[in-house]
Structure formats: structure tokens, C-alpha cells
Nucleic acid binder design. Structure first.
Length: 634
RNA sequence: GGGCACGUAGCUCAGCCAGGAUAGAGCGUCGGACUUCUAAUCCGAUGGUCAUGGGUUCGAAUCCCAUCGUGCUCGCCA
């Protein structure tokens, strides 16, 4: 295994406020974080105890143990886990499922388990119950640990490539899913214990950039029809790109031919390693990319590295890939170009990897790029639009035939956001700019904060700065949450009203839970009450928590690490968003039924305070994984 | 036309990969709850042939096949 290039390299510093990333070991709340507290979660342990106990029980009855049928029971059942195994075994033992369930439950031995204390049946289901210690340990680990939900380090380096939009102009909403989903995927993997780098692959070698460079050098400000839509460099420069494309479409044939010759010369210069050409193209690429970075930083989506495509042309690795491909049995030379037949991978379209003039194509360079990833990382994940699906399949197949282990490569495919009237296009200048969406979101959030000021019960006198902070957290959070909470494969048609809906099931709904937690904890602090797990070691009796709502909330807290684990495993951050909603419901029930500061005894108050601290850590980190900020007041 | 996705309440979506308890939320509509740790909250009512038809199974929104609808894709573009 080659040593990762990035090992030992220090991470770029970044803001520690919610929503941004922070280096491992640093904490959201500015205190030191002690990794020994990192726990895989009580739910996961309970689940494995149930598996083991049930398998033993079945074995003792001489029944098959290959399918345990362990599942989460409906909300109205008080069991933590259940098994539907009796349905399947009914045929084997020749008895009705409820009777089988009864026999199985009777054979389960809960002796020796930490959390599994009781088994019973409900009709055909075997139900498993967690004991006090389950809740006590959950409370202890979550109230105590500001990084609760972070799983133990897996010692696995992972590169998440996302966005990678061609540097042709401002980021529009059509592609906004990419940085938002990509950032969340990276966050979730980080929470799951992977060592993640975030990459933006810069397509700086293609025809688009050659056209852009030619247009930028050819046209003057006077030739352009419009003023820049916004005072940032990519809004200025995209006008040259659009002008150039318009010229190529509409100018007289001789002029177009001359232009094409210049564009072709630029492409040849890149392919031939001509330094002057690299500089010319690089000037445009770097300028536009710089502006796009500025836009993405508003989300914020930040990157560890911008990897340029030309790098793999300059270092010879693209040529090397092409040479190796020619040697394979799948290579054919047809119609003056080198192609690959990928029928064995179920792809009937040939992949051209060298043009007739011997120059490389995007995918050829991307192959070299991916082999570079494999050399430097244990795993690679790419977030890309559905229009790149075929290309990704061809890439996978080709990487495999080159001898790479493609199991280490994962894709997240998302569907584009379209306007009701059709696709967004940078070249044509159609589309809603991400900057405009974020501006509008913040404006509306600000208006909402201000209109709520009057009927606020809490007299915490929001300053102008507070209003602005909340407007940003809520406005940007709402845009991100709306996108990250949906399955990426589903198509979205962009509607302003929908994207900016701050009603329930949106970011403010779950952010509010965090703010409510903070409100109680602040109140406790100003009243001089120590908060178990935060200002004190956790030393509370969970038995004091008599209310179902409190215990139910703790059970949700217990699930969080398992939610992170499966979201990371399946590369599905939207499941974390689903969790935040379910968690919010549990918290709101607790909030309604369990007064904390005015609890009837100090013991109960302390226990509930610890629950609030645990809930805060859970929600803060769930939101952080989604890339949504967690406001301390709103 | 071939390939790949998607189709769940009037609308926006979970649930599907690893089949199992009465298919869940929100918005909308209607009706309730603030002298209380924040009402951006909560409670109740309303609303579904899970696109259609078949198949597998004790059991299908979930797996398989077909059909219909929508999107993406099928360049020596990226």
C-alpha cells in the first residue's frame, strides 16, 4: 500500500463555527476534545447483543440462524429492537408464528449482556428491551462528549471529489446539489471515522477552456453587451465566454474557421506541453475559479485541494494510461482512433481514449487522475450529476481492466435541478445563480427574525449582529437542508417559494431544537446550576427520568452513531436529515412534558439537564454533518 | 429506438438496497394550546388503487418481469 502523499500534511485552518469543518481533535465549543470518549454508540452495541442472544437461542432450538429478521419496531411499541424470525420458522417447526415467537423468546438468555435485559413477544414478534444501563451509558457518553456521534478512527484515507464544475462562470442552482451533497458526504464520512480530503477536479484542459481563453483574448469590454450581473470576477469574465460561444454560432463561416484554428492551437499547445499556452489558459481558469470558490465558500463548501486536469498531462501519466490501454485485449484501432470495447462490462458504446491526432480525451485524463487517487488514498468517492453516469461506468470498467481495485471507488449520482422552463446553462446565461438564491434566503430569514422580534417571550435583546448571524444561519441552512434532505437521484424543479420555505420539516425546525437546548443550558448557567456532562462529570440517576418523553429522547440520542455509520456506509447523508426530524419530534415532546429548570427536585433537574446537554451535542453534530449551522439562539 | 434513473395523500418528501406490526411526515384545509426553560413549537381532524398489470412469497410500497409516464444519456465534447 503506497503511503498517502498527504500523511503528515497539516490541514488548512478554517473556521470553527458550526457548519464549517474543523480539524479532528478540535471542538465546536472551543474546549479540548478527548478522543477516549469516542464511542461507537449504545444502540450499535445493543443491536449486536440482540443478534448474539437471538442466534444462541435459535441454535439451542436447532433452528437456522442465517436470517435473524432484526428490525426496529413501530413507534408505539416500547421495545428497542424486534425480530420477525418467527414468521420464517413457522413453516420449519410446523407451528403458528406467535407460538414460535413464544418458544424463541423463552430460549433467549439475557444473562451476561450489558444492555439487553428482557425479551417478550407481541403476537408473532419477539421484542427486545434495553435496560437502565443502556440509557445511563447513553446519557453519560452523549452529555459528556461534544463530539458525540463521531465514530472511532478507521485509519482509512478517503478522497471525496465533488462539484468539479468547469470554470466557465458563476455557480448556478442547477449544479448546487453537488457542493451541498458533496460536502455532506465528506462530513458524514469524517464523522464515521474516515480521514477525508475534499477535492475539486478542475477541467482546465478541455475545449470549453480553450474557447474561453480565445474569447477572453479576442474580445474587448466594448464588444460585450451587458454589465456584469455581480461585482465578482467570474460574473465579469463569463461575459467573454458567452460572447465567444455566440460568435462561434453566428459569425460568418470564414471568421468562425479562423477562430476554430486559434482554439485548436490552444488545445494542441496544452497537449504538447507548451508552457506559454498553459499560462494563457491558466490565467482565465484561475481567475474564474477564484470567483467560484468565493461563491462556494458562502455555503460554505471548502476544499483541501483543487486538482487540475492538466497536471496529468504534464506528468506523463495520461500518456502512460493510453499506452497501457493499447496493450489490452479490449483495445481496437477503428476509424483512425484508439477505442476500448467494454461489452464485458455491459457497456455497448466504445470508449475512445485517443483521438485520430493522438491527443487525449477527458476520460483518458480522468483515468490517470483516478489512478493517482488510488495511489494516494485508500478510498475514493465522487459526487457527480446523472449526465455523467455513462462516463462514470466507462471509467469504472476501464480502471478495472487496468488492474485497479474499483471496490475502493464509490459514486453518488444526483439529478440536476431544473427550472420550470428547462435546463440552466452557463453558456446561454439561463438559470438562477446560487449567489442570488443565498442572498434571497438570507433576506427572507432576516425579515422573519425581525417580524418575530415583537412577540418574543425571551427577553434576550437581540443585537443587530445577532439578527444578521441568525439570518445567515437560518437562510443558508434552509437552502442546504432542503437539498441535502432529499434523495439525490430524484429530480428537482426549482421554485423560489419552495426552496425558501422556512416552515416545518426545514432547517429552522431542527435548528430551533438546538437553540432551545442552548436556551435551557444558558439559563442554567446564569442561575449557577452546574450542567452534568458539561460543567460537571455526569453523575445523575437515569431512574429519576420517569417520563416517557425523556427516556424516548435518550433512545433517539442512542441511535445517532448508528445513523452516522449507515449514512456513511451507503453514502446517503439525507438519512441524517431524516434523523434530525425524528430527533426534533422527540425533543419537542420532551420539551413540552419535562420542565427542566423548574423540575420538582434537584435530582430530576440535573438528570434532565444532562439529557438537554446530550440532545444538544446530538443535534449540533447531526447538523454539522449535514453542513447546516446550529444557532445558539434564534 | 438502446441503456440508466425516477413515479408513494391536492403539493413537497421519508420508507425501498438487507420484504414483516394499522404505509409515515410536512405544506394545505379545519379546530385547539402562549401570565410557562424561545409558539420558527405543540395537540387534534382531514387526506393514499404506494403509476398500471402480472409474478415470487405465509407476507410486497419494498424483490422479479412487462407496460405507461417523466428525466438523463447514447460525440474523436466535458
Amino acid at each position: 500500500m503506497p503511503k498517502p502523499l498527504n500523511s503528515g500534511r497539516s490541514r488548512p485552518s478554517r473556521t470553527v463555527r458550526g457548519g464549517g469543518r474543523r480539524p479532528r481533535g478540535a471542538s465546536r465549543f472551543g474546549r479540548a476534545y478527548y478522543p477516549q470518549y469516542r464511542t461507537a454508540g449504545m444502540f450499535r452495541q445493543f443491536r449486536s447483543e440482540v443478534s448474539s442472544a437471538l442466534a444462541d437461542a435459535l441454535a439451542s432450538l436447532d433452528l437456522p440462524t442465517d436470517d435473524l429478521g432484526i428490525e426496529r419496531p413501530p413507534d408505539d411499541m416500547d421495545a428497542t429492537l424486534a425480530s420477525s424470525v418467527a414468521f420464517r420458522l413457522a413453516g420449519v417447526v410446523g407451528d403458528a408464528p406467535p407460538n414460535v415467537a413464544s418458544d424463541v423468546a423463552g430460549a433467549v438468555d439475557v444473562e451476561g449482556y450489558d444492555y439487553l435485559v428482557d425479551v417478550d413477544t407481541a403476537g408473532p414478534y419477539v421484542n427486545f428491551h434495553a435496560g437502565e444501563r443502556y440509557l445511563a451509558d447513553t446519557l453519560g457518553s452523549a452529555a459528556d462528549d461534544e463530539a458525540y456521534g463521531s465514530l472511532p478512527d478507521r485509519d482509512t484515507t478517503t478522497v471525496v471529489e465533488h462539484t468539479s464544475a468547469n470554470p466557465t462562470g458563476p455557480v448556478h442552482v442547477g449544479r448546487a446539489r453537488n457542493p451541498i451533497v458533496g460536502d455532506a458526504v465528506a462530513n458524514v464520512l469524517e464523522y464515521a471515522g474516515y480521514d477525508v480530503d475534499r477535492h475539486y477536479y478542475v477541467n482546465d484542459a478541455g475545449r470549453q477552456m480553450a474557447v474561453f481563453t480565445w474569447a477572453y483574448e479576442t474580445f474587448d469590454e466594448d464588444d460585450l453587451d451587458d454589465e456584469p450581473a455581480r461585482d465578482r470576477v467570474e460574473y465579469d469574465l463569463v461575459r467573454y465566454y458567452r460572447k465567444g460561444n455566440e460568435f462561434l454560432e453566428n459569425a460568418d463561416p470564414d471568421a468562425v474557421e479562423a477562430a476554430e484554428a486559434e482554439i485548436s492551437a490552444i488545445l494542441q499547445g496544452l497537449e504538447g506541453g507548451d508552457e506559454a499556452t498553459y499560462e494563457r489558459v491558466g490565467e482565465v481558469v484561475d481567475a474564474v475559479l477564484g470567483g467560484m470558490k468565493g461563491c462556494l465558500a458562502r455555503l460554505p463548501a471548502e476544499f483541501d485541494e483543487f486538482v487540475k486536469e492538466t497536471r496529468f498531462m504534464l506528468d506523463g501519466s495520461t500518456d502512460d494510461v493510453a499506452d497501457r490501454l493499447k496493450e489490452t485485449e479490449y483495445a481496437v484501432y477503428e476509424e483512425d482512433a484508439w477505442q476500448l470495447e467494454l461489452d464485458d462490462w455491459g457497456i455497448d458504446k466504445n470508449l475512445v481514449f485517443l483521438r485520430s491526432d493522438d491527443t487525449s480525451l477527458y476520460t483518458t485524463r480522468d483515468l490517470a487522475h483516478h489512478e493517482w487517487k488510488f495511489e494516494n488514498y485508500d478510498r475514493a468517492v465522487t459526487v457527480l450529476g446523472e449526465d455523467h453516469k455513462l462516463q462514470a461506468d466507462q471509467l469504472d470498467a476501464t480502471l478495472e481492466l487496468l488492474g485497479n481495485d474499483v471496490d475502493q471507488l464509490g459514486h453518488v449520482i444526483y439529478s440536476y435541478v431544473n427550472l420550470p422552463e428547462g435546463k440552466m446553462s452557463t453558456r446561454k446565461g439561463t438559470g438562477v445563480m446560487l449567489d442570488d438564491l443565498l442572498d434571497e434566503a438570507v433576506d427572507r430569514a432576516r425579515a422573519a427574525v425581525e417580524s418575530r422580534m415583537d412577540d418574543r417571550i425571551r427577553d434576550d435583546d437581540l443585537t443587530e449582529e445577532d439578527v444578521e448571524r441568525i439570518a445567515h444561519q437560518v437562510g443558508i441552512g434552509a437552502v442546504r437542508y432542503d437539498i441535502v434532505s432529499k434523495q439525490p437521484a430524484k429530480a428537482i424543479t426549482f421554485e423560489w417559494e419552495e426552496a425558501l420555505d422556512f416552515e416545518a420539516q426545514s432547517a429552522p425546525y431542527v435548528q430551533y431544537v438546538h437553540a432551545r437546548c442552548c436556551g435551557i443550558l444558558d439559563e442554567a448557567e446564569s442561575a449557577g446550576i452546574a450542567v452534568p456532562g458539561v460543567s460537571d462529570p455526569v453523575d445523575v440517576d437515569v431512574a429519576a427520568l420517569e417520563t416517557d418523553a425523556a427516556r424516548e429522547l435518550l433512545r433517539e440520542v442512542a441511535r445517532f452513531p448508528a445513523v452516522i455509520e449507515s449514512a456513511a456506509e451507503d453514502l446517503e447523508p439525507h438519512t441524517v436529515a431524516t434523523f434530525t426530524r425524528e430527533f426534533a419530534e422527540a425533543y419537542n415532546a420532551f420539551y413540552r412534558e419535562c420542565p427542566v429548570l423548574t423540575a420538582e427536585s434537584d435530582e430530576l433537574r440535573d438528570a434532565r439537564l444532562a439529557v438537554v446537554a446530550a440532545a444538544r451535542h446530538t443535534m449540533a453534530n447531526a447538523l454539522d454533518a449535514l453542513g447546516v449551522e446550529a444557532p445558539e439562539s434564534m
